[in-house]
Design a protein around this nucleic acid. Sequence first.
DNA 1: ACCTGAACACCGTTCAAGT
DNA 2: ACCTGAACACCGTTCAAGT
Lengths: 189, 189
Amino acid sequence: MPHPPRISSDAIVAAARPLLEEHGVEGLSMRELARRLDVRAPSLYFHVEGRDDLIRLLTTRGVRELGVMLTVANRAGAGPGDRLHAMADAYANFAFASPQLFSLIFGPCPDERRAEDEAAAAAAEPLLAAVAELVPEDDVLDIAQAFWSLVHGYTTLALSDQFRMGGDPRRAIHRAVDYLMAGIGLGRD
Amino acid sequence: MPHPPRISSDAIVAAARPLLEEHGVEGLSMRELARRLDVRAPSLYFHVEGRDDLIRLLTTRGVRELGVMLTVANRAGAGPGDRLHAMADAYANFAFASPQLFSLIFGPCPDERRAEDEAAAAAAEPLLAAVAELVPEDDVLDIAQAFWSLVHGYTTLALSDQFRMGGDPRRAIHRAVDYLMAGIGLGRD
DNA sequence: ACCTGAACACCGTTCAAGT
DNA sequence: ACCTGAACACCGTTCAAGT
């Protein structure tokens, strides 16, 4: 009887994640990963195609996870305005909990590790649903993009510590979202 | 007489930039850089402290350059509203012209290659100046952050191709900025 | 089928040796 | 002062060999 598998694609991806968060993408090495899984590096190649493939799997998993968090947040809110705030919080929470994965998802990446579009669409859906209840159909896409941009930008800039002074970023982001909602002709509900 | 210098810190940073844009941070290698400068890799260490230092120099230079573009755009606009739009364009232009450098500036980075705060402050100044003419002093910081977030978010998401459908991103970003301006109680001037 | 050690072509960085 | 070749400790990946 040959060797029973000691590792799996899932186990590799699971072990890669803390390594990514601890040392960044550049520190995510196949050899260190193998060390943590107590196998030799070449064994990994029986379960993932290579480093680029592994990173692709990581980001795909990340997008899916973010999608779930947004969907849950969208369900939790009372009205559409509440739901937008809840989704903004979920977005920021994900980014602060997994900053390296977050920046991997939205950073520039070579074609070999580009994730499936399907997952990205799933993450965008709850936002589109919430906005669709607020504005006429023709404006949904534009306004959803504006909201996403605002929340994404605030999250990214806070993450890279561009907003120096203290205070809860959550409160500031809610205020920014309220400004935008007022701009499209809607008060807080 | 000893060797006259064949390279300089400036020449290294200048050569590093196209290499960065062609191959990304991970492809920015000291040995390839040395090849392009027609010296051996160890020579580089007489002019920069190491790879992290080089990347720090690159991002510092990038922030300064972005600051200049924003300052110029700020001077070009007729009224504060115009200036905000011009600065949004400048921001997006920089990002699309130098996507890797842009993502290096705002991505997560280890302490060793963190740039000076001074340069970041210089880049933020023109925005604060434009906003200061539009709203009461107490709101300037909050609203400037909201604008920056919106523009940064839109730029980043467009750059990572999250907004699928075609059309000029410039037009969409202007519309988003107008929404936000309306939200803080200001029409287009 | 899965794991391994050895090997190859890379990499950042250091250092003694040359001018 | 500046450049070099050699060396060290890494890295991703391949492959023949083992079970």
